[in-house]
C-alpha cells in the first residue's frame, strides 16, 4: 500500500460552537480516489471545509504528507498542494475564463503547460476563453472550477458535490473527466450524494451520517452492501 497523503485523525468541527462533525478519521493514499458518501446534511461539506482550512476545527488533526495542516489558513493549505472545488464553485464572475484559470495557478506562477492540459481535458473552456465566468452555464462553470483547481498542479484534488446543479448527462460527463484525472495518477477525495457515480470512480469509500463515519471499505464492497444500497442507492 502506498503511503498516506492525507491523514485525518479524530477531527471535530462545526458552526457556532456546536460540532457537526465528531471525531472523523479517514485517510487517502497517494494515487487513490476516495469517496465520502452520505445524504444531505450528513456533514460532508463540513468535513471537506475543515480539511481545507475554511472552517476552524475544534479537535483532532489533519496531516498532508508530513505537514500538519490543522490551524493553517485556507490559502496556505492551497499552496501546500490541496486544491478544493466547493459545491458553490466560487468562481470570479466578472473575470474571463482565462483570468480565472491563471488565478488558479497563483501559487505556481508558471502556467502555460498546465493551461494546455486543462484545455485538452475541457476543450469547451478554450472556446469560451474570453467569456466572463458568471455568464456561463452550470456545466461550464463546473468545468472551470475543476480547471482552476488543476492549474495549481495539486497533489490532492478535493471536490464537494461536483454534480450540484448538473443534469444526469452532465454529471456523468463530470465524473468521466475525474476518471481521466484519476487514471493519470491524481489523488482525489470527493464528497457526493449521488452514490453510484461516486462509487464508480472511487477505490474506497466512507459512509458519513450525523457527522460520524458509519462504515468504510472498498468501493465495490460498499456498492454491494445492503444497507448502503437501501439508504443511498434507491434499492429496496
Amino acid at each position: 500500500m502506498a503511503e498516506d497523503l492525507l491523514t485525518v485523525s479524530a477531527l471535530s468541527a462545526g458552526y457556532l460552537g456546536e460540532d457537526v462533525l465528531s471525531e472523523v478519521t479517514l485517510d487517502v493514499a497517494s494515487g487513490e480516489a476516495v469517496a465520502v458518501i452520505g445524504s444531505n446534511g450528513a456533514g460532508k461539506t463540513t468535513l471537506l471545509r475543515a480539511i481545507c482550512g475554511l472552517l476552524p476545527t475544534t479537535a483532532g488533526s489533519v496531516h498532508f504528507g508530513q505537514t500538519k495542516l490543522t490551524g493553517l489558513g485556507a490559502h496556505s493549505i492551497a499552496r501546500a498542494g490541496i486544491a478544493f472545488v466547493p459545491a458553490e464553485r466560487h468562481l470570479f464572475p466578472t473575470m474571463s475564463v482565462r483570468d480565472n484559470l491563471s488565478l488558479g495557478a497563483y501559487p505556481k506562477r508558471h502556467q502555460h503547460a498546465k493551461l494546455e492540459f486543462v484545455f485538452e481535458l475541457f476543450p469547451r473552456l478554450e472556446e469560451r476563453g474570453g467569456q466572463h465566468a458568471g455568464t456561463m452555464s452550470g456545466g461550464e462553470q463546473q468545468m472551470l472550477a475543476v480547471g482552476r483547481a488543476l492549474m495549481s498542479e495539486p497533489r490532492l484534488l478535493v471536490l464537494d458535490e461536483p454534480t450540484t446543479g448538473l443534469s444526469p448527462l452532465l454529471a456523468t460527463e463530470a465524473y468521466s473527466a475525474l476518471a481521466k484525472l484519476r487514471a493519470d495518477g491524481l489523488t482525489i477525495l470527493v464528497a457526493e450524494q449521488q452514490v453510484p457515480l461516486a462509487l464508480s470512480l472511487a477505490d474506497r469509500g466512507y459512509v458519513l451520517d450525523h457527522g460520524k463515519i458509519q462504515l468504510s471499505g472498498q468501493a465495490a464492497e460498499l456498492a454491494d452492501d445492503p444497507g448502503v444500497r437501501k439508504a443511498y442507492m434507491g434499492v429496496t
Binding site: C52, G53, L54, G73, A74, H75, S76, A78, R79, A83, F84, P86, R89, H90, L91, F92, P93, T94, M95, D99, S102, L103, G104, Y106, P107, R109, R148, A149, S152
Partner: peptide, 22 residues
C-alpha cells in the same frame, strides 16, 4: 498577477483563498 489577485478577493474572497491568495 497581484492586481488580478486583488480583483479576485473583491469578487469572491473564498474563491481567492482557494487559489492560495492571502
Amino acid at each position: 498577477t497581484f492586481g488580478r489577485a486583488t480583483r479576485s478577493v473583491i469578487q469572491d474572497e473564498e474563491g481567492a483563498r482557494l487559489c492560495g491568495i492571502n
